[in-house]
């Protein structure tokens, strides 16, 4: 059993209700807004900084690296992925079709020996 301590009345609309509603909606928006800002600005800045420093080391124009990165759209990737998927899933359709019966010589094993089966114990 756990006792819930509510300083105000447990039922009806009161100041606590409106506090919960206001804080609740505010915090949900604030949390996701912070994640948005982080990924929209901070992370983009960090990744671009890394790309620029990489470009400088290699002696490439940083602007060129950034352009190359952004022109590759998700649709292009989706098309490549679909092509690869279809290619690998259709591999089995190019089987030779030749059926061979290959005889396999079996080595002696006591596990399958008739001499040691249960009837002969």
């Amino acid at each position: 059993m756990h006792t819930l301590y509510l300083t105000e009345a447990a039922t009806g609309l009161d100041s606590l209700t409106w506090t919960i509603v206001a804080v609740g909606i505010g915090i949900v928006f604030l949390s996701l807004l912070i994640v948005y800002w982080f990924f929209r600005y901070v992370l983009t800045f960090i990744l671009n900084f890394r790309l620029k420093s990489f470009a400088r080391k290699k002696g490439i124009d940083p602007a060129e690296v950034l352009t190359v990165k952004t022109i590759q759209s998700g649709e292009v990737n989706a098309a490549i992925a679909m092509a690869l998927y279809q290619y690998f899933n259709e591999l089995h359709d190019v089987e030779s079709g030749v059926v061979t019966i290959k005889r396999v010589s079996r080595h002696y094993s006591p596990w399958s020996s008739k001499l040691y089966n249960m009837k002969n114990l």
Binding site: M1, H2, T3, L4, Y5, L6, A10
Partner: peptide, 8 residues
């Protein structure tokens, strides 16, 4: 299971 402070 939980009980409110007013006993409910």
């Amino acid at each position: 299971i939980n009980v409110l402070s007013d006993g409910t």
